[in-house]
Design a protein around this nucleic acid. Structure first.
Lengths: 139, 139
DNA sequence: TTCTTGACTTGGAATTGTTCTAATATTAGA
DNA sequence: TCTAATATTAGAACAATTCCAAGTCAAGAA
């Protein structure tokens, strides 16, 4: 889903499209690197020096609740965010703390609505390890 | 793996078996409810009134590094721990914040060592939703 | 056993990440 | 343009975790 579609959806659903909200969504659209809240905040500060951390948190929460972005809890103690909401695996390198997308086919949970009597609402398939770049450094 | 085997493994590897470390491992062995650090700390306080939070954190980190327990980052902002280290899915209910084990067969990552050039060291397959108990409450 | 050294634990301070709050600013509709 | 509702701001408050210095304990040497 491109950014115009997401903005249109927000608009349709009656969400006020402030410049800050636009900026946060735009930032995630331009940076598919799974940034942390801190990274988003400091990057936006460069353009909108008055933007507040609370606004960044509120906006991320709002976009998440509209189903337009994805929250990632792969790294302990801090949140990452992803523009892409289609279910896909995330890989965290415990050396450089970079989060990568990885493609895994054949997940048995795909499309499932219930498991053990619990209602499935979101999949968060995470993998921890050492990324290709850090493997090379090792030598 | 039962607790005696884990204690033996610690001993073999030259890890000092203090009463605090024993207590933390014992607590996880007796409570397969995926407790948070806070829950572990306050439960142990009842028996060992002098135990410090730092020791609980240090011990959990140590046991994790020995591969004897598992850290769970399913809930934002806080850690849960699991005595069981065999890969299995965890389900977080976003209403009651309870973490459940769920059984999912046929994970395509099982046994895999590499993905996209990254070295896989740990799988963290998480699912978010509403648990069976909370689904009943809803009505 | 006593001594010594290194490892472990403690309590509290410091740090980090997130949420809350009250005041101000902006928006959309009348 | 006015009004009421909503959004943003700055900083305080809060929660989870890590750090630190001091004291304690454990294992091996004498």
């Amino acid at each position: 889903m491109n950014i115009k579609e997401k903005l249109a959806e927000l608009n349709e659903k009656g969400c006020t499209l402030t410049i800050q909200r636009h900026a946060v969504l735009e930032y995630l659209y331009a940076n598919h690197t799974h940034p942390t809240v801190e990274e988003i905040y400091y990057s936006l500060k460069k353009k909108f020096s008055a933007i507040s951390k609370a606004t960044v948190y509120n906006t991320l929460e709002l976009l998440k609740n509209y189903g337009l972005i994805q929250e990632i809890t792969i790294e302990k103690g801090k949140l990452h965010f992803d523009y892409e909401v289609k279910p896909h695996h995330h890989f965290l390198c415990h050396r450089c703390n970079q989060v990568y997308d990885v493609d895994v086919e054949g997940c048995p949970l795909a499309g499932k609505e219930m498991i053990d009597g619990h209602k499935i609402e979101e999949l968060r398939p995470y993998i921890i390890g050492t990324c290709s770049k850090c493997l090379k450094k090792k030598g």
